[in-house]
Design a protein around this nucleic acid. Sequence first.
DNA 1: CGCAATATTGAGCGCGATCAAGTATGGTGG
DNA 2: CCACCATACTTGATCGCGCTCAATATTGCG
Lengths: 248, 248
Amino acid sequence: MTLAQSSSDFMACADCNIRNRAVCATCEPHELSRLEDIKYYRTFDAGQSIMFEGDEMHFVASVVSGAATLSRTLPDGRIQMVGLLLPSDFIGRPGRDAVAYDVVAIQKVTLCCFRRKPFENMIKDTPHIGQRLLAMTLDELEVAREWMMLLGRKTAREKITCLLSLIGRRTASLHMQKLQDGLSFEMPMSREAMANYLGLTIETVSRQMTALRKDGIIELGGTRTITIPDLAGLMAETGDDTDGMMLT
Amino acid sequence: MTLAQSSSDFMACADCNIRNRAVCATCEPHELSRLEDIKYYRTFDAGQSIMFEGDEMHFVASVVSGAATLSRTLPDGRIQMVGLLLPSDFIGRPGRDAVAYDVVAIQKVTLCCFRRKPFENMIKDTPHIGQRLLAMTLDELEVAREWMMLLGRKTAREKITCLLSLIGRRTASLHMQKLQDGLSFEMPMSREAMANYLGLTIETVSRQMTALRKDGIIELGGTRTITIPDLAGLMAETGDDTDGMMLT
DNA sequence: CGCAATATTGAGCGCGATCAAGTATGGTGG
DNA sequence: CCACCATACTTGATCGCGCTCAATATTGCG
């Protein structure tokens, strides 16, 4: 029944790299083994759709590796991304039959999937999972609201610098780099994806990237390789209060 | 210790008008009586601040009546509202010491407050509350994401018609009006509040309201009394898929 | 190498912001 | 009851950021 879609057929939860950040983070060993019974892995290539808005939701999942986006589309074709899914993030909404957003892989993605019904039952009788999911959902809500500020009130330059600073710092923390000396990373998304995430057009994204390069705020090696010589300088352009954020 | 701030000192939960929609909706009688022990009412006048961003959060609360807003402010003063709190909505984030947004009453508001620590303990040992809070938070997340689409991709006219349609339909459902023949309601917020909610300026809001009036989409009697002769006509201007939304 | 997809650059325009008056509206005290 | 003032809202003139349309350049891939 459970069709293996991937080469990595099985991995023990104990060995999982998102073990202590995902929805299963606070599970006891016996809870974990129940999850282990209903989980299965799937992978999707960059560009592949994972779920379509309006479809029936057969499974929920944790992102194990790679990246995906949540987006909505207006009848006339305008697109707005409403979420970025990175390792340990949760996909799907318990208690809802239909998918509310398009979910698309922007890098090769591995998911740890749970069939929806068994997972919903586990929420009911496993408080740890429900509590963890609540905390994660509250975090997502805060991220969404910070993004509302960006979309509603920030200029194009501020939007771009916010995104670069976000991705840059996240990548650095993943690789334990220190932030002081030049930070280098790969952008996980195309110019079009950036535009849809920031509420801009491709052309404006491109122009602002060029402007930031000319101003010495960033350096580009290929379109997706970005170097930030002075992170504080970049963050001074975001419009945010920069105090205390350098600690992360 | 618990200082009564209001004339309505006490109300039995059983008689509460948000009893079956708020965070307490799925509570059993014994759980409800525990909540009843730690609850107290407070009222705030229109314009009064309820919480300030960064302050310590002493209590969480349900909105019983009236309306309040959540907003964030950039260092240079730009404001973006990130949430609208109406009766049955929940204020505060369990497990977090500091308030993440400014909370301001935009109408006279009555809150059903719970001191934070006792409430957090109840979440741990009362699954019904945690589950209800999870469902409500997921709903809020969906609303926030729909608002991201509005802020990032919609025109000023679409933004205004979305807001009017939202408030109008909600008011109608509260008063059990049928939607077909002219719908009339009071706008609960100023032009400035509308602007901050929609990511626009006051002037643009005002101009779009005038334009909609001249186009016969809305009628104005005083600045806050709004009549919508043809709701379908208004909704055709929102940019959304209008199918199926008229049922609500 | 050749093609397709992606990104950059340019010219011009228009939507919504800004700056600036002007007009209700509502509360207060004489 | 009305004159007064503060606040909220509307309207007008102009500006400029980001969009549109269009051409060119670059990248990635068979």
